[in-house]
Design a protein around this nucleic acid. Structure first.
Length: 698
DNA sequence: GTTTACGCATCCCCG
DNA sequence: ATGCGTAAAC
């Protein structure tokens, strides 16, 4: 056992926590010797979160003030979880500790220093959709000819602009290397990008990229601020460092520039955010960037069975561009992961639903079961199946609650209340009025630009298109009421009590449900003291912080549907990875990109290593409802050596299979897949009745 | 010139 | 289901 050099001024026997007992030697080493520049290479399931949590607790026990510690995590949820674990370790919540994502930390700091950068402290945050609509306005304002072949969509344009900013490269460079087909229109794209930046300025607004960029700008150009902050953050810990980009790395470097106590944790095998310009060299080159870096390795996997790890280890060795590593399992042996070919997406969904029920019978709680997929919309068929069987689930990925149209409408109202220069919000609010489209909204919004506050705008006279006059009068009443209110929940109710209610009723058949949503939203808002904090939370998390109860079902009783990206850092007893066919996973579009295939494989690695005990790989061998198309199983499955997986055959009498326990009679009706003598798959015709039923379910 | 209605393709991943 | 582009009405 390795000996540890302890801090002279600190006696480990006097701590509340028995670090030696609760951590393994690798973890303990990090916790006790994590001062200075430290790189922790932590494999999946190696107790990374545990190590960081104990490290924070240790620092606090050593007498470091919470406000001198900065903990950067990949999601805000992760930060909250870690801090509450610190609380249960220490018996007190580390109030004042800085924890959150890069974006949320940047937001907090920028609210303080906004004026030094030419923004006001109540600047607006633009989300993806806002950014898109502002770019749309810019395209129109520039009179760009978009009819010429293959002009990029606003979303694509934003992706290009965003990538350039996050990678610290020029637009031209990015277009040349990643979007060569847009090379001829590169000058046009740059003009759009410039106008987009101007418009954001004018609206006192930042998009997500600006949050990072402006913070970096602040630290770089304002020496006093850098010194103050770098002095404040005595200890900095960064989780998931393999997914940081160059801007984030610069921010970290600046913030750590006084004390140099910078501890980063990550795993190059789990780098899955290159589309966000994540820079793997940040972690690989960390020892070169920081002198006297101490490197730690966590290589013992406490999460998964050896059989699951064998699959993960074997798969990731196919990647060339990586550190060689192998995770060692300590869990007991169990069954091999299952390989489940289904005849179509519907049967795949049926199998998963059925198996989930069987697992629950065996005593696995629903909250310990997850189904993972590559793209948010891959879960559709499964969702129908789960609803049909009343299996409660929680969906992660895809449209977040705060991104739903009616919620965004309300938020837009709140935003103009907070920042009356917020052009994007105005466009949305005005666009709701009858007779007002893109042009009309812009005409009106441009008149509002010079006013100081909402109150002034409401009291003044504006030229309003004839068709919109009635609508505007209604809106003016709502805004008038809003300018007298302060609290977010009252503001929300002011909107839903006004003309917006009529709009909802006219527009959506399910408007009662939506009104109910908005009342929930107002209730949620009651927990916030200021409008600014509330809006920040809405923009930066996209989802309720605390899970709400739906239909009386609490979190514990629900299984999880999630994209693999969102499943990062999480774990479950039983995991299904679905839609494992070529074209879907690895997803076709990824193969065009440099290193795309290897990133897809890392994604497969992340998915695999989420499972503790049971793992199922499922895929439909056909797709389409009218014309059946045969699909190939994912290459990630095909490239695995024989014997790692247990193939499950779905057919009549399936209860005889080794996995047993789904001998439900309805399987007799299901399409049949058998292996012929050569081991090739034969597809039996799909029974007609069954086929029609499938169609009805759409 | 604008708005809106309608048919069509489309949808990777995130804060 | 959403969002785009195109064509008809205000």
């Amino acid at each position: 056992m390795k000996e540890f050099v302890l801090q002279d001024d600190f006696d480990l026997s006097k701590t509340n926590i028995d670090y030696r007992k609760e951590l393994n030697s690798e973890q303990l080493d990090v916790v006790l010797n994590g001062d200075g520049a430290c790189l922790v290479l932590a494999g999946a399931g190696s107790g990374k979160t545990r190590t960081i949590t104990y490290r924070v607790a240790y620092l606090l026990e050593r007498g470091i003030s919470p406000e001198n510690i900065l903990l950067v995590t990949f999601t805000n949820k992760a930060a909250k979880e870690m801090l509450s674990r610190v609380e249960s370790l220490l018996g007190r919540y580390p109030t004042g500790l800085w924890g959150g994502t890069f974006h949320s930390i940047a937001n907090r700091l920028l609210r303080i220093y906004a004026t030094q950068l030419g923004y006001t402290p109540n600047f607006t945050i633009l989300d993806q959709e806002d950014a898109k609509s502002l770019i749309k306005v810019c395209i129109k304002a520039l009179n760009v000819d978009t009819t010429s072949r293959r002009f990029p969509s606003p979303a694509k344009l934003h992706a290009i602009i965003s990538y350039a900013q996050n990678s610290g490269r020029t637009m031209n460079d990015v277009i040349e290397s990643r979007y060569p087909n847009f090379l001829e229109i590169a000058p046009v794209i740059e003009r759009i990008a410039d106008l987009y930046a101007d418009r954001k300025r004018q609206a006192d607004a930042m998009d997500f990229d600006d949050l990072l960029l402006k913070l970096q700008e602040l630290l770089f150009h304002h020496e006093g601020v850098r010194q103050k902050l770098a002095h404040q953050f005595e200890y900095i810990l960064v989780d998931e460092y393999q997914d940081t980009n160059v801007v984030q790395a610069q921010i970290v470097r600046n913030l750590a520039s006084e004390h140099n106590n910078i501890l980063v944790v990550g795993d190059d095998a789990q780098s899955i955010y290159s589309f966000r310009a994540a820079e793997i060299r940040n972690i690989l080159g960390f020892p070169q960037s920081y002198a006297d870096t101490k490197t730690f390795r966590l290589t013992t996997n406490y999460r998964s069975t050896p059989e699951i790890l064998a699959v993960a280890n074997s798969s990731i060795t196919q990647n060339k561009d990586q550190f060689q590593k192998e995770l060692t399992a300590v869990c007991e042996s169990c069954e091999r992961p299952s390989l489940v070919p289904a005849s179509n997406a519907n049967q795949e969904a049926q199998f998963i639903a059925q198996k989930i029920l069987a697992l629950r019978e065996q005593g696995v709680p629903l909250s310990e079961i997850a189904v993972l997929f590559r793209a948010a919309f891959h879960s559709q068929t499964l969702e129908f199946e789960l609803m049909k069987r009343d299996i409660p689930y929680e969906y992660r990925g895809g449209l977040k609650f705060f991104e739903r149209a009616h919620v965004k409408d309300i938020v837009a109202h709140l935003r103009v209340r907070q920042n009356s220069r917020d052009e994007v919000a105005w466009m949305r609010v005005l666009g709701l009025l009858n007779g007002v489209g893109l042009a009309g909204a812009e005409k009106m919004a441009s008149q509002f630009r010079d006013y100081e506050s909402l109150e002034h705008i409401v009291r003044s006279h504006h030229s309003v298109p004839k068709r919109a006059q009635v609508g505007w009068e209604g809106l003016r009443k709502t805004l008038e009421k809003m300018s007298r209110e302060e609290h977010p929940s009252e503001l929300i109710r002011a909107v839903t009590a006004g003309d917006y209610r009529d709009y909802l009723e006219a527009e959506y058949p399910d408007f009662m449900d939506r009104l109910e949503d908005l009342e929930q939203f107002a209730l949620f808002a009651e927990g916030y003291a200021s409008l600014q904090t509330f809006l920040d939370e809405v923009s930066l998390t996209g989802e309720y912080g605390a899970l709400r109860e739906e239909g009386g079902v609490e979190e514990d009783e629900r299984m999880v549907l999630s994209t693999i990206h969102q499943a990062k850092g999480l774990e479950w007893d039983a995991v299904f990875v679905m839609h494992l066919v070529d074209g879907k996973f690895p997803i076709g579009a990824a193969l065009d990109e440099d290193g795309g295939l290897e990133e897809e494989r890392r994604l497969f690695y992340v998915a695999t290593t989420r499972a503790r005990k049971e793992l199922f790989f499922t895929y439909p061998i056909t797709s389409g409802y009218d014309t059946l198309m045969l699909s190939q199983p994912s290459m990630f499955l095909q490239e695995l050596p024989d014997g790692l997986l247990e193939e499950v055959k779905l057919k009549a009498g399936i209860s005889r299979s080794q996995h047993g326990s789904f001998g439900d009679s309805q399987w007799d009706e299901s399409p049949t897949i058998v292996l012929n003598d050569l081991g090739e798959r034969e597809l039996k015709p799909v029974p007609k009745m069954n086929f029609l039923r499938d169609v009805d379910e759409l």
